[in-house]
Design a protein around this nucleic acid. Sequence first.
DNA 1: ACCTGAACACCGTTCAAGT
DNA 2: ACCTGAACACCGTTCAAGT
Lengths: 190, 190
Amino acid sequence: MPTPDRTSLAAIIAASREIIEEHGLAGLTMAEVGEHVGVRAPSLYKRISSRDALVALVATDAANDLAARLRGVLNATTGGPVAQLSQLAHALRAFARSSPIAYALIFTPASDAMRADRSAAKAATEPLMLVSRDLAGEQNALLAARTIASWASGFLSMELTDNFRFDGDVDAAFEFGIAHLAIALSASAG
Amino acid sequence: MPTPDRTSLAAIIAASREIIEEHGLAGLTMAEVGEHVGVRAPSLYKRISSRDALVALVATDAANDLAARLRGVLNATTGGPVAQLSQLAHALRAFARSSPIAYALIFTPASDAMRADRSAAKAATEPLMLVSRDLAGEQNALLAARTIASWASGFLSMELTDNFRFDGDVDAAFEFGIAHLAIALSASAG
DNA sequence: ACCTGAACACCGTTCAAGT
DNA sequence: ACCTGAACACCGTTCAAGT
C-alpha cells in the first residue's frame, strides 16, 4: 500500500547541514537527522545508503553552493584580475566563516567515503582557475591556481581551527597573502 | 597489592600512531590500542582520560617529532633563506607523506578536544618563523610566516586528501609555489 | 596500584511487520 | 512503497571485584 512521503532527500541534506554547523560533525547522528525531518532513524535508509554517504551528499551540496557564490562574485566584479582574485578570496573566506564544518568537509574530508562529488569539488575551484589564467597567463594557469588554492585553503583551515594562536592581526595576514600572491603570480606571466 | 606495570603511556601513544596510519583515525578503537599494548580496553583509562585526550596526545607527539625534524633541517642547511625555505618545505612534505593522518591531526584537528598541545604546535612552526624573518625582514616576519605556512599546509592537505584531481604535475606545482612565494616575500623586505 | 569481566549508554544498520 | 519498533553489532566508558 503506497504512502505519501513524509520527507525527502533534499530535506535530509538541508537538516544535516544545519546540524553539523550547530553541533559539529560528531553531532550528526541518524536519530538527530530523523528528528529534524519528522521520521525515525531507520527510515532515512530509504533515501541514503549510509551515514558516510549522507556526509558526502552534504559536502557535495555545500560545494555546489560555494561554486554558485564564487561564479556570482566573478561575474559581478569589474576590475582587473588582481581585484577579482581579492574578491574571490574574500567570498571564499565569508563562506568558510558562515559554514565552517561544511567548508572543512569540502577541502579536508576525513575519508574517501565522505568526499564531495568530483564535479562539484571541481566547480568550486573553477572561478579561481579562470582568474589564475588572467593573472599568470595560459602557460602557468594551473600552477598559479594550485598555489592560490593551497594558500587560501590552508589559511582558512588554520583560521577556522584556530591554528593562528600567536598574536597578530589575522585580517591583515589575509590581505598580505592576497597582495603578495598577486604580485608573484603576475610576475610569472612575463 | 601493587602489580608491575604491563604497559606505559609512551607505548600507548606509539601504538596509536601506528594504528592511525594503518587503519585511519576511525580505526583507533580502545580495544585495538589495548591489543597492541597487551592490556584490555578498560585498563587504558589508568593512563588516559578519554579517547579524545589520547588523540590529542598523539597529535602532540607527532608535532614534537615534526618540530625536531625541521630544527634538524634548519641547522643542516648552509645556503641563504630561499634555499632554507625550500628544504624546510620539502621536509614538511616528507613528514606529511610518511605520517598523513598525524599530519592532519596537527594542522586540521577535528575538534578542540583532539588538538595538539599549544607549545608543541608552536614549536613545529618555529623554524619557519626563523626563515621568514631572514627572508622578509623583521617587520614582515609574522605575515610572511603565515603566508608560507598557509600555503604549505593547504598544499599538503590537498595533496593528501587527493584534492588535486585535475591532471598535471603535483611535484612541479610544489616547486612553483616555493619559488614564487620566495620571490614575493623577499620583495616585501625592500 | 594496576588489571579484568560485566555492564551501560549510545550509535549505525537491518529487518519483519504494519499501513 | 514508505514507516516503525525491535534487535544486533560495535564502541567508549564505568565499576566492583580480583591480584
